[in-house]
Design a protein around this nucleic acid. Sequence first.
DNA 1: TGAATTTTGGGACATTTGTCCTTTCAGGCC
DNA 2: GGCCTGAAAGGACAAATGTCCCAAAATTCA
Lengths: 191, 191
Amino acid sequence: MANTFRQFLSAIAPISDEEYSDTMSFFSERALKKGDFFVEQDKVCRHIGFILKGTLRTYYINEKAEEITSCFCTENNLATSYKSFILQEPSNLIVQAVEDTKLLVIDYQSLQELYSRSAVWQTIGRAVAEREYIVMEQYASVLNNETAKEKYLRLLKEQPSVLQVVKIEDIASYLGVTRRTLSRIRKDLNN
Amino acid sequence: MANTFRQFLSAIAPISDEEYSDTMSFFSERALKKGDFFVEQDKVCRHIGFILKGTLRTYYINEKAEEITSCFCTENNLATSYKSFILQEPSNLIVQAVEDTKLLVIDYQSLQELYSRSAVWQTIGRAVAEREYIVMEQYASVLNNETAKEKYLRLLKEQPSVLQVVKIEDIASYLGVTRRTLSRIRKDLNN
DNA sequence: TGAATTTTGGGACATTTGTCCTTTCAGGCC
DNA sequence: GGCCTGAAAGGACAAATGTCCCAAAATTCA
């Protein structure tokens, strides 16, 4: 079951069987039903989750009370409100399951415990932060440089499954345009 | 001279006098003249620099051969092409001094050496990555949610000195609009 | 210093995107 | 099945932004 997680870790730092089974006692499985929240608004995010199955959407509410989607999280990736988790402060981001989802989760205290116990986990912790940075840099570069149409095509290519489970409105806010503009883009692409 | 750097580190992790002077032997000072490159395009970024004095601009060249500015780096902050540095792969970002600049730099090998020597530096390394992540997340959220005018006002408030040293064109690309639109925004703000 | 070059501001028009709205379609529920 | 509700597509007009341009201002360098 947790094999994909082992692969995920091994891609970051070599980890022995012993270290792996030791650390796995810090993790637990968690199931979410469609619509359940993994991180709630204004609550401190206490967990990082590795997505075994399912899809989550990360969004925030702007001052016009609109939901702005910032991320779709899919299988074999991490889900968290990372800033809230790092700083252990209330989250302005909301993370919600858009379909039934299974996660492997670890809480903040346990992760700190792992960091202090093991150099391997220090390395993993840094590598995860670096990796999240790179993902975010890529996201920002795309936001800044690509048109909504290009962004849509990229989503279609990189996370096609997302289109099947989320609402058009959420994709529009993810692309930084209105529903109306996304409608025009989609019409355009069907010639 | 390097006092501000000591403060920068202390804000991340407690560091003793001994640890500080030990590790300082890994750093060296570097001066850049206006227009000099700190990171060149398609070369591996081998250094992280702490800006003692001056300003740098981070940008890339898009497929229309336009310079797109992604970051202005000011005093008491870090400058690097972080992704290239982490992965030690060629940088698509260019980092250039927009005025005479002094940095405290460390190269990749030395930093790895510090990581392996000292738990404090493991923690600093992770904290820096986390911090860079948070900055980037904030940047992406701003890009996605604020209008060009709001972004301009934010820049004015958070990095007013930048306006004195960089070209309008670079600010426009940083805001994600054309020079023409930034001109309209500025006219608007002067009533 | 003065000529050449670069940078900036803004006019005129074209294009894109947003706003507001109506219609159609699909799924859930009695 | 028929009704209700929410999601999606797209028409019509308004607003924002881009493109192309030129003239004025600032800067650079011989």
